[in-house]
Write a protein that binds this DNA or RNA. Sequence first.
DNA 1: CGGTATCCACGACGATACTG
DNA 2: CAGTATCGTCGTGGATACCG
Lengths: 101, 101
Amino acid sequence: MEVALAAVSGRWTTLILRELMHGPRSFGQLRVALPTLSAKVLSERLTKLVRHDLVECRRQKGFPSQVVYRLTTAGQLLRPLLIELYRTGDALLRQSRRLPD
Amino acid sequence: MEVALAAVSGRWTTLILRELMHGPRSFGQLRVALPTLSAKVLSERLTKLVRHDLVECRRQKGFPSQVVYRLTTAGQLLRPLLIELYRTGDALLRQSRRLPD
DNA sequence: CGGTATCCACGACGATACTG
DNA sequence: CAGTATCGTCGTGGATACCG
């Protein structure tokens, strides 16, 4: 459990993964999709995901430079978990309004 | 997703919930089950879970005082999520050994 | 465009001591 | 037994500036 939680925890991580579930995305595309997230934190999250082999990145040759991130096979394993997170969150909200602090 | 993640995130939270999934537990029982967790943090986590209506607590009258925590109906909703966390963590470990930093 | 370096602020965590 | 109070420490996130 701690392993899976470590994989998806950290603010923004689930949102980044959600974007990548829809297909490969460049650094810039992720920034646009998550505007309130600073470049530093996005970079940190992606680095961690890459270290954990959940995401891989490809540098495109040429200028301007372009780097595309995509889920690895291991990363795809997270899909059911993300769906379950969504399902559970939804169920909690339906049952009670007290969840947000 | 953020709602569900907020419910289970925080170090130790999943472990506390896991204990409570097995049935009601007193503060002391939880401390024994999670020896490396300080009373302060356990208290903080339980307070938060109670605030979120995921857990409720009952004071037993008499001495020594005894307080029992148990999952609420909403808390029970988290069971599939915890199972999925376990399942996914297991799958990740099987596929790769690089997950722990 | 895609990052890293630096600095700062805040919150989380642990240890210890104390209360009802 | 079941907490709360206090304190020090460390990690995390944000802003800004800069590099390849």
